[in-house]
Amino acid sequence: MNPDKIGTRIMKTMEQKGISIEALAERTGLAIGFLKRVQEEDLYPSLGPLLKIARSLGVRLGTFLDDQVGCDPLVIRKSERKGELSMLRARDKPAAARFYSLGRGKTDRHMEPFFVEILPESAMEKTLSSHEGEEFIVVVDGEIEIVYGKETHRLGPGDCIYYNSVVPHHVGSAGDTAASIYAVLYFPE
């Protein structure tokens, strides 16, 4: 087991709290098979299911992203960014997005800031997700398409969007080329 993998951290938290996979499935509303793939096959869900897992286990989302001692102020140099997770990755599917945590190391944070590379594969499956909180996105490079409820918005470099993430939404590339964004997610406690 690799301790740096999200699935490993989820299993460790479940063991510490004495929660079975069946109980976690019941608490989150997620299928047992899906939860097993997250834990065993290095499958990273979108942030909605990951947040449900964190909430059900009584931990912050950041618990699965880092376990370092916090520091203030936190400075992350561009050259120090590390790929934290790739969303929608399974053995038979390419990654749709790569997330780089910009808050890693600040354990008392209330927001989750990310630099995100949105890959063209993100446009293939537009699965909507929802979770409590808010999201703020600024497009750095390329174009993205955001499905927000029944609306669709196309954004280019310099454009931004701020929305309540309880509304079902999807963020993907708007075409055949990759895009990059800065995203800040807020999850109420």
Rank of each mutant, 00 (worst) to 15 (best):
residue 48 G to M: 05
residue 104 R to E: 06
residue 49 P to A: 13
residue 63 T to R: 01
residue 62 G to L: 01
residue 159 D to Y: 04
residue 64 F to A: 00
residue 111 M to K: 01
residue 9 R to A: 15
residue 152 T to P: 05
residue 63 T to K: 03
residue 78 K to L: 13
residue 161 I to F: 14
residue 118 I to C: 00
residue 44 Y to K: 06
residue 32 I to W: 06
residue 106 K to N: 02
residue 14 M to T: 08
residue 37 R to N: 13
residue 40 E to P: 10
residue 5 K to Y: 11
residue 90 A to T: 14
residue 34 F to L: 14
residue 150 K to M: 14
residue 163 Y to T: 08
residue 78 K to H: 14
residue 38 V to K: 05
residue 6 I to M: 11
residue 83 G to D: 08
residue 129 S to N: 08
residue 182 Y to P: 03
residue 43 L to I: 07
residue 183 A to F: 00
residue 57 L to E: 01
residue 2 N to K: 10
residue 59 V to M: 07
residue 147 V to T: 14
residue 28 T to C: 11
residue 183 A to M: 08
residue 34 F to V: 05
residue 48 G to K: 06
residue 36 K to G: 10
residue 22 E to Q: 12
residue 4 D to Y: 10
residue 2 N to S: 11
residue 162 Y to L: 11
residue 106 K to A: 01
residue 111 M to G: 01
residue 149 G to L: 13
residue 22 E to L: 13
residue 129 S to L: 04
residue 122 S to P: 05
residue 4 D to S: 15
residue 163 Y to V: 12
residue 157 P to T: 10
residue 21 I to D: 08
residue 150 K to L: 14
residue 154 R to Y: 11
residue 148 Y to K: 10
residue 171 V to G: 02
residue 170 H to F: 04
residue 40 E to M: 15
residue 110 H to M: 13
residue 77 R to S: 15
residue 173 S to K: 00
residue 69 V to N: 09
residue 104 R to G: 02
residue 32 I to Y: 09
residue 186 Y to V: 07
residue 4 D to C: 13
residue 170 H to R: 09
residue 115 F to A: 00
residue 146 I to S: 07
residue 60 R to G: 06
residue 29 G to T: 05
residue 22 E to S: 14
residue 53 I to D: 00
residue 179 A to W: 00
residue 48 G to R: 06
residue 56 S to E: 06
residue 46 S to I: 01
residue 99 F to H: 01
residue 156 G to C: 11
residue 136 F to P: 05
residue 111 M to L: 12
residue 51 L to K: 11
residue 178 A to P: 03
residue 62 G to F: 00
residue 19 I to S: 05
residue 63 T to P: 00
residue 89 R to F: 04
residue 10 I to K: 09
residue 147 V to Q: 14
residue 184 V to G: 04
residue 43 L to P: 05
